[in-house]
Simulated assay, not measured.
Amino acid sequence: MVRQMTEMLKGVLEGIVLAIIAARPAYGYEITAALRERGFADIAEGTVYALLVRIEQRGYVDVEKVPSEKGPPRKVFALNASGRARLDEFWETWGFLAERLEHLREEEE
């Protein structure tokens, strides 16, 4: 089951991270902590950071460097209009898939 969960998460992790950032701007560690608080404990920090690089490159977030008390400045990610559109598309797709899967499960019972 763990392998199947990992494979499924790969397909939706971008939307999950965008949803977290939509709630409030955050830096990488905060996003990872928010994922863990929501039960996604097995997602590696490296996976989250690689995803943040991709969503920044795709123009879904605005990034601000904020001074840190410990070490270099932190990159704080804030959802922009393009990211909001992408997140809206994610939720629409998620709703479509969830509805179809629920019908399929009901047919099986």
Rank of each mutant, 00 (worst) to 15 (best):
E69V: 13
G71Y: 03
V48H: 06
G95D: 12
P73L: 02
E89M: 12
A23D: 13
R58K: 15
P67Y: 04
I31G: 00
K75Y: 05
L18T: 01
L101W: 02
T47S: 11
P73V: 02
K75S: 15
I55K: 01
R86N: 04
K75T: 06
G71C: 07
E56D: 13
D62V: 06
L97D: 08
A98L: 11
I31T: 00
K65D: 09
E106G: 03
R36N: 10
G83Y: 00
D62C: 05
I20L: 15
I55Q: 00
R58S: 14
T93D: 14
G39P: 01
E89L: 09
P73R: 02
A44Q: 14
T47P: 07
L51A: 04
R38S: 10
E64M: 10
A85V: 11
E56W: 04
T47I: 11
L18E: 01
T32C: 10
A78G: 08
R100C: 06
I21K: 00
A85S: 13
Y49R: 15
A44H: 13
I31Y: 00
F77C: 08
A98Q: 07
A41H: 09
L87V: 01
V63K: 00
T93M: 14
Y60M: 11
I43H: 02
A33P: 05
G95L: 10
Y29D: 07
L104Q: 07
L79E: 05
W91I: 08
R24F: 05
L87S: 01
G39W: 01
A33G: 08
E37C: 05
Y60L: 13
L18V: 04
E37N: 11
A26C: 00
A81V: 13
R54W: 15
G59T: 09
D42A: 09
